[in-house]
């Protein structure tokens, strides 16, 4: 009975989030446009600089000659990742600003249900975006990849997502207690953005940043996904096992920080704006 109640609460949170999202129709459109903007930009930069649709230089570093496919896969992982970081954190912070967060937290529902309801909507939205992007990218930009391998890569996108959710929860737990969370989140987003390896292989970054990129769950996810799409499972064992290890680590961090913030909320209370 208790489990059913919790599930109903989860569903309630998810539906509420969905309603709020879809009420900003223009923002949804402008969100979807961002995908075309990124990939279109990649295509035109490539053609403008090399005059060709394939790049030998990129192939040497990453195995991908087709730079557009490379960017598409990276962008999808990034979109996925930002969903769990910025989307997630912002929705919590927005509720904090609006003053509704306390109501949600005051409900008997477990707090993790509230976070998971958020995650659920985001996940659904991400897959929705992807189902719009993939066919259109294939048509519009002539993106070519082994579809079977792409499907095979999806479970690892989800495993990467576990790590991203963990990081997102840690961030959400933390920002609730900052004085001015907005810019802090932006800074975090930008770090993720720069180190996600979406648009370029992280091996061209300076050493320090490479290490940092490896330590966050985003670049390892894009690398694993890209490698599986290009070469299948067996060739990607190293990437896969590293990703699983990392995701597990962030899941624990996320859980612990959620516990901490739960305790913190009861001792110091939430701030009002």
């Amino acid at each position: 009975m208790e489990a059913i109640n919790e599930l109903r609460a989860l569903y309630g949170v998810a539906v509420k989030n969905w309603r709020i999202f879809t009420s900003y129709k223009l923002w949804l459109v402008s969100d979807v446009m961002m995908g075309f903007f990124f990939v279109g930009q990649a295509l035109l930069i490539g053609i403008g600089l090399t005059g060709e649709r394939n790049s030998r230089a990129l192939q040497q570093i990453t195995g991908y000659a087709d730079y557009v496919t490379f960017a598409v896969l990276g962008f999808m992982v990034l979109g996925f990742g930002l969903t769990f970081l910025s989307g997630f954190v912002w929705s919590v912070v927005d509720e904090l600003y609006a003053g509704t967060l306390e109501y949600s937290f005051a409900a008997p529902m477990r707090r993790i249900t509230f976070f998971m309801g958020n995650v659920l909507t985001r996940l659904f939205l991400s897959f929705l975006y992807m189902s719009v992007y993939v066919p259109i990218f294939i048509l519009l930009f002539d993106v070519r990849f082994n579809f079977l391998n792409f499907v095979k890569a999806l479970p690892f996108l989800l495993i990467g997502a576990v790590g991203m959710i963990g990081l997102g929860m840690a961030a959400a737990g933390l920002v609730l207690y900052l004085k001015d969370p907005g810019p802090f989140i932006t800074i975090l987003e930008m770090l993720v953005f720069a180190l996600s390896g979406a648009m370029y292989p992280i091996s061209i970054l300076p050493m320090g940043l490479q290490v940092l990129a490896k330590a966050l769950p985003y670049a390892p996810t894009s690398e694993a996904v890209r490698k599986i799409v290009a070469y299948g499972y067996t060739a990607s064992v190293n990437e896969i096992s590293y990703l699983m290890l990392l995701s597990g680590f962030y899941a624990i961090i996320g859980y612990l920080s959620y516990k901490w913030s739960e305790k913190q909320a009861r001792t110091v209370g939430l701030k009002s704006y």
Binding site: Q41, A42, I45, G46, G48, L49, T50, S55, R56, A57, L58, Q60, I61, T62, Y67, A71, D180, G182, P183, F184, T186, I187, M190, L191, F193, A194, A198, M199, Y200, P201, I204, L205
Partner: peptide
């Protein structure tokens, strides 16, 4: 903090495309 975050947004956005171009080119000169 807002000023810093704005500057960071500015830089990261730039890096994305310049690094991408360089990766495709295999250098900086086209």
């Amino acid at each position: 903090l807002r000023v810093i975050s704005s500057i960071l947004v500015g830089i990261v956005f730039l890096l994305q495309f310049v690094f991408f171009g360089q990766a495709v080119l295999g250098g900086r000169y086209s």
